[in-house]
Every structure is written in C-alpha cells, then in structure tokens.
Design a protein around this nucleic acid. Structure first.
Length: 359
DNA sequence: AAGACGGGGCG
DNA sequence: CGCCCAGTCTT
C-alpha cells in the first residue's frame, strides 16, 4: 500500500515537532542505555509519572555497568510505585546480557535487541530510531490511535496482528533522514493534539492529510474491542506486633508483585475465625491479643483483579520457626524494602494513627 | 489470541 | 466507575 501524501505528511509532521516538541529529560541524551531505560519506564505508563523516576534512576545507575551490577532489591526499591515490576528485572537482565555478550554496547539492530529481556517490537524500534537514527517503526497505542485516524484504519487495535498493519504503514511514512524525530512526533501529536477523547483537529499540523478529519469521524477511532473482566479477591491483612516489631514477608519470586514485601495476607474463603486460625497456622504464631479489628479497609484495583483488604492489629508470639520469606522487622526497616502501593498505604496509616501516638 | 502484569489520571 | 497510558511475556 502506497500513501499518496507520504512526503508532505512526514515533512509537516517533523516540522511541527521541531517547533512544538516537549522538553523531556530523555530527549537531552543520545545514550542508548538512557533511551532504553526511559522507554521501558514509559511502557503503559504516563510521561508525568515517569519523569521523577527517570531522574532518580539515572542518578543511581548512570551507566549500563552500574545497572548490570546493581543489587536487585535496591533496584526494585527504585521502581517502587511505578508498577509492572517485572520490567525492572527484565531491564537488568537485558542490561547484563549486553555487558556480557556485547561488551556493554547496546545492539543497533532489531534482531539482537528483541532477543533481550523486556524489549519487544516497540521498544526496539524506539531505541533504534531515537538513539541510532535508524528508520525503524516504533508502534505503540499512541501511534495506532494517530494513524488509525490519519489513514482511517478501522481494524481492531486490541488484536495483536493489527499492530503489523501499522508497522507496515510506518515503514512507508517514516522520514528517512529524521526517523527518531518522526516516531517521537507521532507520539507528541498523540499526546498533545490527537488525544484519545476530543482530538484538537483544528490545531493539527497534518489535518489536510487526515482522512478522519475529512470524514469528520476522528473521535470514533481507533476501534478497540476487548473489555477486561476483573475478579474480586478478599484478604485479611495482619499487622502482627511482637516486641516493637511487625511480621513482614517477601512475596514469591514470580507472578504478581514478585519479590515485593508485604504484611501477612490471608485469603478469605471462610469465616473470620477460620481466617484467624489460618493466619496462626501459616506463620507459626499465636495471637495473644487483638488490639484493633478492621482498623483500615482498602480496595486496590489492578488491571486484571481487585484486592479487598481488611487490616487487623494483633499481638503475637512465635510458636515455631518463621518461614524463609518471613521475619519480624521495625517500621523503620520497612522503609528500606520495596513495597507495592497497597502496602505503602497501610504502612503510612500505621505510622500516622497507630504508632505515632505511642511515641 | 487471550490473559497476566501496577498504578494513576481523567471524564 | 470504565477507559487509557511511549507494551511485553507466557500460555
């Protein structure tokens, strides 16, 4: 498929970008490693969220070697609150492979890049076009939205195969001399003009080449199916105190929130009494006193499930060995560990309302 | 192709 | 409350 206005389209788009582009921290470098870090952080995550994380991360891990040899728990702590924590581990795994296999030089071809953990079609294209100025497509949700409108593509963007349609389109459209600017221009256009709802077509630099603007149905695109059905899960969370410390555990090394730390949680399937027994049995402790029942309730929404948490403050004594992943820690020690957001919220509530008044 | 995988912002 | 966000990996 040849597009009649490719030449004018790419020129208008890139000229607009050179005038209006956002000043973002990762746009002040051509270091492939730093571009890589930014692109991984930006996966499914907003620019405004990423900026402070990016600064802290690059300060702590300024080079590919620094990250390759970083402590994994510290790395997770740096990622705390960003979500999709496997991104952090995959990034380090990829970085290690580059150090060992490529002498610390980030590969400059799609094949080798996509072999690295955490680098898919999009991220490979972003690194190649932005850091190495190579004419490679970098198609994300943003680009699919913009091009679905410009080219009036009505395929369902929720389907994996649809991305290939857009990748082929970008191969035709991409600016051969400014491929990185072209790709970033599509993203900035998507962020600033061609927004998901109420696109600002009258301010758009490429509206004269936009089929949807002509048809007047830009707000109807892209077509996206797939609504996710999330399931509810109910847990009791036990703040189990013993001698000024609380029971704390590390989650399993794979699956949801892998290797993150949490207060003990018991899946609720039976009565409150049964759940309490289950807690004692699971952690080899005996509840000696119930200090506060249901002192904090929280609903936490993930993309695929909902946690409904009810917190209880209890006093316990050990009646057997704690598991490998379990230990008593002070509130201060908790600050050093990587926690998922729902646990951070519980910890902050404790500091504010439960332990603070005791000091 | 579909589900797992976080968290926040916005209408 | 549902949708979306500079996606990738696993099944």
């Amino acid at each position: 498929m040849k597009y009649p206005y490719s030449q004018q389209f790419r020129q208008s788009l890139v000229e607009w970008f050179h005038r209006e582009k956002r000043d973002l921290p990762w746009r002040r470098t051509k270091d492939p490693y730093k571009i890589w870090v930014s692109e991984v952080m930006l996966q499914q995550t907003r620019v405004d969220t990423v900026i402070p994380y990016y600064h802290r991360f690059i300060e702590k891990y300024p080079s590919i070697e620094a990250l390759a040899y970083a402590d994994e728990e510290e790395l997770l702590k740096m990622w705390e609150g960003l979500g999709y924590y496997s991104r952090a581990r995959n990034l380090q795994s990829g970085v290690k492979e580059v150090v060992e296999k490529y002498g610390g030089i980030v590969p400059n071809n799609r094949h080798d890049l996509q072999q690295l953990k955490g680098i898919g079609s999009y991220t490979a294209g972003a690194i190649l076009s932005i850091a190495y100025n190579l004419p490679e497509h970098a198609v994300d949700g943003n680009v699919m939205r913009v091009l679905s409108r410009v080219l009036h593509i009505t395929e369902d963007i929720a389907l994996p195969k649809t991305r290939k349609t857009f990748e082929k389109a970008v191969e035709q459209l991409i600016h051969p001399e400014y491929p990185g600017d072209f790709n970033q221009a599509l993203m900035d256009l998507g962020a600033m003009i061609c927004t998901p709802t109420s696109p600002k077509c009258l301010l758009c630099p490429v509206r004269e080449y936009c089929v949807s603007f002509m048809e007047g149905d830009a707000d109807q695109l892209p077509i996206k199916s797939k609504k996710t059905k999330v399931k509810n899960e109910y847990y009791y969370v036990y703040i189990a105190v013993n001698d000024g410390k609380v029971l704390f555990e590390r989650r399993h090394s794979d699956g949801l929130l892998a290797n993150m730390w949490q207060f003990p949680m018991i899946f609720v399937e039976k009565s409150p009494e049964e759940t309490g027994k289950s807690f004692e049995k699971t952690y080899n402790v005996k509840i000696t006193k119930v200090l506060e029942e249901d002192f904090f309730e929280q609903k936490h929404v993930f993309s695929h499930l909902i946690w409904n948490l009810r917190c209880h403050l209890v006093e316990v004594k050990e009646i057997g060995p704690l598991g490998d992943m379990v230990q008593f820690v002070t509130l201060k020690e908790i600050e050093e560990l990587p926690l998922p957001v729902p646990m951070i919220k519980i910890k902050n509530f404790l500091k504010q309302y439960i332990f603070k008044p005791l000091e």
